[in-house]
Amino acid sequence: MARGSIPILRVGDNLLVTVQTDLHDAVAEAFQEDLLAAIEKTGAAGLLIDVTGLDIVDSYVARVLADTAKMARLMGTDTVIVGIRPEVAATLVRMGYTMSGVRTALNVDDGLAMLPARR
């Protein structure tokens, strides 16, 4: 999977990205770089990552997601992860992985409502 293949949409002051492919290392790193570059360029107030399409989130992918949110925070952008599936949530918790500090929402609408518009 090539770089830049995960489309990043602008919704008002926010960025919306929908993950649907298997995030193995190369893709996950490109994904993180692309997102941070987009934040740098747009100065977005918020970032929504929709993971409804992910049926598997292992500790590696979970960490990429959590790290991306932390990096975005450092750049002044709030991140909300939306659409984590029941079986994915249960698996992460059973493994003992806590995505502490990561904000979550049931769907894109709820997620957008959690992100304050800039100023």
Partner: peptide
Amino acid sequence: LKTTEAVRLLGA
């Protein structure tokens, strides 16, 4: 606690 964390991951 685990259930609470899993529910939180879903956004509730």
